[in-house]
Amino acid sequence: MKDNKISDLQVKLSPRSKIWIESQGEVVFGRGRLLLFEAISETGSIRQAATKLNMSYRAAWGKIKATEERLGMKLLEKNTGGHKSGAELTPEAVELLESYGKFKEESEEAVNKLFAKYFDGFINKFR
């Protein structure tokens, strides 16, 4: 069976997974929202964050509001006018980003370990 070019598995195989948090079948938080909140933190502006991520302000605002409603907490402080105009993350948002980042990292580590457990023997048969 080694002659059937499965030895091309030497091109490293690796698992891929997407992980997000839902409530009653609706997205609460995931990679897209993480990127949005990180961009808001970086730019200090919902509009600039949306532009950076190639999305409309309306789409960004919709994601923010949906996340706040589903979590039952405020994640952004919006300031209008003056030297502090723009948006900044609440302490709850900062904690959410940190927790999700750690959760995602550990989830990826677990997926990699499971992949190795179930596929290393299979892959090694063809090397």
Rank of each mutant, 00 (worst) to 15 (best):
I21F: 07
A50F: 02
A59Y: 01
L34A: 03
K5D: 08
A116W: 06
S85H: 08
Q48V: 13
F122K: 11
K52D: 11
G81F: 06
K18M: 06
R31Y: 11
D3A: 04
L35P: 00
I46Q: 00
L75D: 01
F29V: 05
A60R: 00
E22S: 13
L53W: 07
L9K: 05
R33Y: 00
N4P: 03
P91T: 11
R70T: 03
E92Q: 13
K102C: 12
N54C: 12
E109M: 11
E105A: 13
M73P: 02
K18G: 07
G44T: 03
A110Q: 11
M1A: 06
G121E: 14
K78A: 13
T80F: 13
G82D: 10
Q24W: 06
S56A: 15
V11K: 12
N112T: 10
G101I: 08
F29H: 08
A50W: 00
L36A: 00
R47V: 11
A59S: 08
G121Y: 10
I19N: 09
G121V: 09
L13N: 12
Y118I: 13
V11R: 10
L114S: 14
F29I: 04
S99T: 15
R31Q: 08
P15V: 07
E77Y: 11
G44D: 01
E108I: 15
K63M: 09
E106W: 15
K104I: 09
E106Y: 09
S7R: 15
